[in-house]
Structure formats: structure tokens, C-alpha cells
């Protein structure tokens, strides 16, 4: 599938500061997403991973002096980023197909309906839910619901995709399957994956960062070799997992 908006561009976060109450969660934080790559951020809970993701999404305002979110192609990021959360966020009163088409529905793009209907069905097929188009979310399992959410994210067809622990609520086997599916379907896109699962980060990340401390810092990236999704049998992966786990343990103390 072609990515909307031409060649992948990178996203820079510079001098970001976010504080809830008094103490800043992070201050003068620099971070970047390489164009067309998967960047994974690991860290103890409460460190500000989700806030960083919300900042890039435009759901939180950066307050720091000279704070800036910029794209390498010079255009603003707004409108070019899609969001996938830990909860599937399916609307229970819409069926699966309507949920996949939620974006165009919310933007009132009624005229584009026929073409988008076809595309939504094709996406549902690619996540293996072609048969469930007119089912309601309540009748789906957790894994199926998250696959619908993935289809909805793809339906937006945005070059940058931000994911906040999208697979963490799933059982181990479903999680691995969905990781593979996401890696294939989001190829060529610029992805930020926030997760607390080191193995997930190592399977999917071109770059894997650990975020830690108060105010939070983001360390230099680990760059595992090989195309994603990496095989679970990859022995190098297990070595790196050990290193990541020790970094995380350090971060948590």
C-alpha cells in the first residue's frame, strides 16, 4: 500500500517541556522519529512515554522555551498523524465497517463514501475480519477489536502513526500475530511505538529508546539488525533483551 504524502519524512521534537502541577515530567527534551522507521520507546510507567506521544499527536501543548515539533519536509505535522491506543476505542453503537470509516464520518466526508467503503472492506480483509464487517464491537474478542482498531488507523492513511501500547492488553499469541500484521501493514510509515515490553520493542523497532528519570531523559537508541518483524527465534534478540532489561531495571531504581 502506498503511503500518503510521498517520501517519508522525519519528525523532530525539540526542547519540549511538560509539567503537571509543579515538577516537570520532562524538560528540554529532544527526540526524533526517523522517516519510514519504527521507533520504540520503553520506560517505567509514569515516566512520560504517553505524554510524549500525546505531545506529538498535538493533544498536549509543549510549554518549554523554544519548544518545537517539526517535520523534515517543512510542513506541519497536524493532519498527518494517526493514533492507535491501548484501548481499541471502538464506538459500541457503530458496526465494524462504520468504526473503520470513523475518520471520514467525523470529518463529514459523505461524498467520498463509495470509494472509502471499498477501501475499508479491503483493509478489513487485510486484518482478517472481512466476515465481521457488520458485526458490533461487543461481539468481538479483544484481539479482533484491536485488529479493527488497526484497520481504522490504516484507513486514515497518514504517513506518521503513533501507537501507545496497542498490543499490551492481548494474550501472548494474539500479541505476536498482531505485531507481525502491524509490521507488514505499516511498512514505509514513520511509526512511534510506546511499549513496556522489551521483546516487542526489539521485534518491531528499527530504533529502541529507553526513557527514564525525573525529569525524563531519552537515551541513545539501540539499533537491532535485520528487517522487522524480527523472528522470535533470533538469538541476537535475546541478547539485546538482556541488555534492555538491565537498562530498564537501572532506570526504575
Amino acid at each position: 500500500m502506498d503511503v500518503a504524502g510521498g517520501a517519508p519524512f522525519s519528525v523532530q521534537v525539540r526542547s519540549a517541556r511538560v509539567a503537571f502541577g509543579g515538577a516537570p515530567l520532562f524538560d528540554r527534551l529532544d527526540f526524533s522519529l526517523a522517516g519510514g522507521w519504527w521507533t520504540c520507546v520503553l520506560g517505567p510507567s509514569g515516566v512520560g512515554k504517553t505524554t510524549l506521544l500525546r505531545l506529538i499527536l498535538g493533544l498536549e501543548e509543549p510549554t518549554g522555551e523554544g519548544a518545537l515539533i517539526a517535520c523534515s519536509d517543512g510542513a506541519p505535522l497536524s493532519g498527518r498523524v494517526a493514533y492507535m491506543a491501548q484501548q481499541d476505542l471502538l464506538l459500541p453503537w457503530l458496526n465494524v465497517l462504520e468504526n473503520v470509516r470513523l475518520g471520514s464520518r467525523l470529518r463529514g466526508e459523505a461524498r467520498a463514501r463509495e470509494g472509502s467503503d471499498e477501501r475499508a472492506r479491503a483493509l478489513l480483509e487485510s486484518v482478517g475480519l472481512a466476515q465481521n464487517a457488520d458485526h458490533y464491537p461487543v461481539s468481538l474478542s479483544g484481539g479482533m477489536r484491536q485488529r479493527v482498531a488497526l484497520a481504522r488507523t490504516l484507513m486514515e492513511d497518514r504517513p506518521v502513526v503513533l501507537m501507545d501500547e496497542p498490543f499490551s492488553g492481548l494474550d501472548a499469541i494474539t500479541r505476536v500475530k498482531l505485531q507481525d500484521l502491524a509490521a507488514v501493514l505499516l511498512r514505509e510509515r514513520t511509526v512511534l511505538l510506546v511499549t513496556h515490553d522489551p521483546l516487542e520493542a526489539l521485534r518491531l523497532g528499527h530504533r529502541v529508546h529507553v526513557m527514564s528519570g525525573i525529569p525524563a531523559r531519552i537515551d541513545d537508541a539501540l539499533e537491532p539488525e535485520g528487517a522487522i518483524p524480527r523472528s522470535l527465534n533470533d538469538s541476537a534478540l535475546l541478547g539485546l533483551q538482556g541488555e534492555l532489561l538491565s537498562r530498564l531495571t537501572e532506570a526504575a531504581t
Binding site: 500525546r54 499527536l57 493533544l59 493514533y83 491506543a85 476505542l89 464506538l91 467525523l106 470529518r107
Partner: peptide, 24 residues
């Protein structure tokens, strides 16, 4: 979460009210 999602989908305030808040 639904409101965040609607915002990232560039829904207008009115559309969010009509399509998300009211049904919910």
C-alpha cells in the same frame, strides 16, 4: 480516549458532539 481519537481525526467540535458525545 474517544475524544482524543476524534481530535486526531480532525473532527470539528460539532461533529464530535453529534457523532461521539451524543450517542455516548
Amino acid at each position: 480516549g474517544w475524544l482524543d481519537l476524534a481530535e486526531t481525526m480532525n473532527a470539528s467540535r460539532w461533529s464530535t458532539l453529534r457523532q461521539v458525545r451524543i450517542p455516548a
